[in-house]
Every structure is written in C-alpha cells, then in structure tokens.
Design a protein around this nucleic acid. Structure first.
Lengths: 198, 198, 198, 198
DNA sequence: GTCTAAGCGAGACGGTACGTCAGGTCTTGCT
DNA sequence: AGCAAGACCTGACGTACCGTCTCGCTTAGAC
C-alpha cells in the first residue's frame, strides 16, 4: 500500500534509468570515464540525450549512481561472527570489497578523480560512498577493541583510516588490490596484539 | 665553453618555461585544475599556445612539472638524527609535507585525479612524485625498525602504505591535512613503542 | 436548437481557443514571432501545450487565426459611395488598413515570412488573407474604371498589384506604412486621369 | 601592389569562404532555407562547423553573402541607351532580374523572411540588396521623366515602389515572376506615354 | 448510477539544431 | 628553428524547441 501519490504528468520511463546506468557502467568499464561522452551513453541506452539530462545533472553524478547501485549489495555491515577472529573477519571483508573494486576499478577511480574537481560532488560521494564503507570498518575495529583484540589505547578511527588509505593508495597508484593486500592489511592492523605487554 | 652545440634556429626562450609554470600554478590554485584551459595558461604567461605545446604534451604533465618544481625542495630525505626518536622525526616530516600539501592541495589533488584517466601519466607521476616520497618514509621506518623502535615482525612497507594512505585518504576526501593528522599518524604507527626520548 | 450532435467525450473548453489566440497576439507583438515558442504561448494562456496542438498544427496557422480574427472586421468590402471619388475612397480604405497594419505589423510580417518557408501555409494565407484584400482593391478600381475615373486601357489587376505591392514593400522593408503612404499611393494610381486624351 | 599588410596568424583558408557560400546556395535551393542546418552546410562544404561560425554569426547573414555574391553581377546600373525607349529598357532590365530571381527564388524569399525576424539583419539586407536595386529603377524612371517619357507631375519614387512592390508581391505570394510580369509592369508604368520607338 | 469517450494539465520522451568551448594541429611572417 | 598570432578540424557540452506520448483527472452523454 503505497502512500506516495504519483506526480502529475507522464511518469518517467521505468526502464530508462536502469538502461542508462547499465550503459554507463558498460562504457566506462570499456573505455574509461574520460573517454565516454554523455551522447555515447544515451546512444548505448537507446535513450534521448535529454532524458539523461532530465535525471542527472552531471556525468559524475550519473556514474556515482550507476556504481552505487552495483555496489549497494556490498554495503551491508558484515555480520559479527563470534566464532571468527576480528582479524579474519576484516580480511574476508576486504577481500570481498577488493573483488568488486577490481572489477569496477576504473569507474571508481574516475569517481574519486571527478570528486577532486567538484566540491559539491565530493560531498555527495563522501556521504553516499565513502563514509558508509569507512563506518563498517570502524565498527568492526571498535568491536575488536571491545573484545580485547585491539589494545584499548589505539585510535580506531585512525586505524580505519589506515585500512582505507592503504587500498585507496594502492588503487590510485595502479598497484594490485587483491587478496594479498587484504591479508597484509589485516595482518598489520592486528599484528600488535601480542604486544599487549608493552 | 659549452660542449653542447647550439642547434640550428632560434633558441628557446629561456624565460618562457618559468613563466608558463608560474602561470599554471597560479591559475590552478585560483580556479582549480578542471577550470583552467591551456589557452588561459598561455595567456596568463604571455606566451603563444604553441610555445606551450612545444614543451609539454599535456596539461597534466605541465602541472606535474609546475608542482614538482615547487616541491623539489621538500623531496630531500630527512636526515637521520640520533637525538630524536623516529616517531618525532616522522611527525615533523609529515607536518612539513602537510604544510606544502595544504598550500598546493588543489593542484596535487588534480594531479592525482588526472593520473586516473591516463595510464602513462600515472606512471610518470608515480615515478617522479609518489615513489620518492614513499621511499623516504619507508627508509625512516626501516631505520626505526633497526633501532628497535618498531618491532622486527612488522611489515615496514605496509606501514609506509598506512602513512601515505592515511593522508591521501584525508586529502582526497577533503578532510584537513594538518599537524593533528601528522601527530595522529605518527602516534598510531609507533603506538606500541613508548616514545622514550620525549 | 442545434442540429449538430455533440460528439462523445468531454467537450472542448470554449474559452481556451480565445485565450490562446489572445496570448499569441500578445506575445508575438511583444517579442516578435521568431522569439515566441509554443510552450510560451501555452503558458501565457494558462493552457496545456497539448490543448494548443489539439486545435492548430503549426505556429503559423495559429498566428494566422489570431491575426485573422483581429482583422476580420477590416475585411468588409468598402461600400461604394457615389458621392466620393474613387481616389478618395481608395485613400480612406488604405488609411484604415494601414492603421491596423501598423498595430499588427510584426505578426503580419511574421506571417508573410512564415509563408515563405511553407508552401501549404502560403496557400492558406493567400486564400484567407491576401486574395480577399486584393479583391477589394481590384473591385474598387474596376468600379472606378467603369466610372471613367480610370482609363479603359489600364490593367486593373496590375494596378491593384501596384497598390498592394507598394505597401508590402514598405512593410517588409521597415518603411512607414501610414496616411502619407496611403495618399501617395492613391494619388499615383489616379494621377493619370487627366491624361485621358493620350 | 597591395598596401594591406597581412594580419598576424594563420591566414584564412581562401577556398573555404567560396566553398561555404557555394554549399549554402546549393542546399538552400535544394531544401529551402528553413530546412538547412548550419551543420549541413559545413558538411557540404567540407569545412568544420566552427570555421563557419568564425566568419558569419548567423545563417541569414551567410545566405545574404552567398546570394549577394551570385547576384553582384546583376547589380550594375543598366546603361542608358538613347536608341531604346525607357519603357523597353525597364522591361528588359526587369526580365533580366526576374530570370535571376526565378533561379534563386527560394534563397531570396528566405532572406526577406529572415529579415522580418531580425531588425539588424533587415537593415543590412536593405542597405546591401534592396536599396541599390531600387535606385537603379528610380534612376531609370527619373531619366525617363527628364526625357518626357513620364509626365513631370509623376512621383518617380512611388512609381519605383510600384515596380518593386509588384514583383515582391508576386514573388512572396508564389505567383510567377517572369517575362509577362516584366512586360505588364513596364506597360502599366509607361501606359500614358505611347511607346514610340517600338 | 455506472460506462465510455474525449478534453485537459502536466510533464517525460525521441529528436534536431543551436552556439560555445576546449584540445591539438597547421600555417603565416618575424626574430 | 623558435615565437606570436590565429585559423582549422574535431568533438563534447548544455540548452531550447519541436511534436508525440502517457499518465490521472474531469466532464459530458449514453446505457
């Protein structure tokens, strides 16, 4: 039972949005963000150029939406599993993220790049994409801290920054973002645990 | 007596290159990378557009050169000073880098952005800009490890990644890159080893 | 008691047509034909764009109707008045037409312009607007010829052409279309009368 | 020996202007003014769209130039020939003009139409196209008046208006503009003076 | 009193053209 | 051979209209 009344006028083509996002991801993956024109996306989606402008005011916002949709599934907070060490949970979470990141590396790097040129877009990108992912890791680490897997003196926010920073750094510098990296990050974040005595 | 024979024809205007780089930095700082056209740079430098193309094939390369020149002074490996803890050395080094980074935030973020769209440029940028800076930190940390300020089991490369990743992450997300960040990074990297000397 | 059966469905809004025509004339007079969009007319008339398309298939046809309505009153054949010379009758008729023409100069010039681009419209425009007015003058002149006010050898159709041509020419070239012109035209058409002997 | 110094920079492609004008005339004749886009002209002329914008700011101005060039040859004042009656000279002049007019009817009607929407353009069109032609006829008629072929009481300007008006009227209403019209116009202008020489 | 048919307001849609802007190349005369 | 100047080709941009369409709602006569 929907309480939302349909607005006046012809309703938006329900398939268009999907087709456009799909076309966007496809082309950006194939050619790279900078080499994809809005006209090309519209053509690929079999949609008028204006239709696209009706919904997104910017290529960056469009790509953000497209990637975001693809990505939404990975945005669920990883379940806390008392049978697994936090280290292993982090590693598995990162591995999963990295898989997606490797597939969509180009669009995502393009988004980060686009965000550098447009303050407003950076806000949105941060709000919708960056912060939620950061929070997941922070939560996981805080949990670990509560469990004693991380020393109480550590700054979890900074550790979370280390985690994200490490793979952003790799991603943006063209270094591989893979299972090895996931293992190394997790290993180094939790490595100090034995150091409890110090 | 120069051993280099002057090539035929009019020699290059020795002042042009400097004027162009200065104009580039000025405009990019004022308007942001994406809103500066090559024509605008040439005009600002009182130089023909072609003169610019004679020297750089790309806006990105030009900005890279411009920033690089400004930046060269900060690229010296920090001297190892046995009277200071490595933690304190790292913090001071980062603080110094961050000062420069804050001034030139926009051009540098633009460079990182530009690198995402152009593989070749990413190589050059990495080679000339990223790797040298990374090495300084890695060296510093390795030194600390040799001194016992970092446990021998730690992965210094990954720690270095953490350091750089952390401020890239902050930089690219519009978070402040300041002395606080420097302190926090250094603090968290060296957290398990009390800062004896201070 | 109307013999026309009302067709099924909701009847047309009786006020819409009038409002649209009024809005059309208003806007065309204010901005000029070329700078008025159909959407603007619909907005001005507080009517949906489609309502407009339900009644006219073309901006030109709409303007034609709008001007035609305004103009219908001037389309009555001037009464033959035996107490006035034909010359004076022509002059008065032209003066009357010119007054209206000066008020509605822009829409009418726009109609003539529009007619140049669209053969079908030119037909309609000619049939509904041009020919009737031409006939009035031709009739007046023929009458004058019968009265001996114009030599029997003259070609009245061509003279009528001269009359209309003269003020079209003035109208389209931005020259004033006023009482002076009316007097001059009438004067020159009837000037040869004394020449009867030749 | 040209005193004009070449301006700095790459000189304009000398062939481009001609090619563009030729393409313009060709397309306008084929499709009609309203159905020719600037892009189509550029394509037909094998020239970049921008090149066209570099030289003309408006389709109307471009067509004006194109037609004007084609037309310049007809702009010479007809020589006064004492062996021919002015009536016959006028008829021959009109016949010549009408031939050109029939060939280029569409572009010229389009120019007249375009002039109705744009005040500035109407000025230019009048100055460069209309007035010179009007003057030729006026001169011819004045000459005839001096010769006694037209009564001294006649208003030559108005007669000239009749001549031009008559064929504009025919042209704009889709009536034929041919030798018959030329003969009729000349005949009616000179009607009261027997054409002695013929 | 429902049913059916059409008009209406609103606004999305596929198109076409517009004028602008930027990038990178080229072609002049001058230095 | 470099330089200033500027034209050229290319291609993308965002905007404006056009004429058509598709909704929900309204307004009538027909059943």
């Amino acid at each position: 039972m929907s309480t939302e009344k349909q607005p006046a006028g012809r309703p938006r083509d329900t398939e268009a949005a999907g087709a456009i996002k799909a076309a966007t991801l496809k082309l950006v993956r194939e050619r790279g963000y900078g080499k994809v024109s809005i006209a090309a996306i519209a053509a690929e989606a079999n949609v008028a150029r204006q239709t696209l402008y009706n919904r997104w005011n910017t290529k960056a916002n469009l790509v953000l939406d497209a990637v975001f949709e693809e990505t939404a599934q990975y945005a669920d907070t990883p379940q806390h599993d008392p049978n697994q060490s936090s280290k292993s949970q982090l590693e598995r979470f990162l591995a999963q993220v990295f898989t997606h990141l490797t597939e969509n590396g180009d669009p995502i790097r393009a988004l980060i790049a686009a965000a550098q040129d447009d303050h407003a877009f950076r806000q949105v990108f941060s709000e919708r994409f960056v912060k939620p992912r950061e929070k997941m890791v922070t939560d996981l680490l805080r949990n670990a801290q509560n469990n004693g897997e991380i020393a109480p003196t550590r700054n979890v926010e900074m550790l979370s920054s280390f985690v994200h920073g490490a793979f952003w750094y790799a991603l943006l510098n063209g270094d591989p973002v893979d299972n090895d990296l996931a293992r190394n990050i997790a290993g180094e974040i939790f490595t100090h645990v034995p150091d409890r005595s110090v």
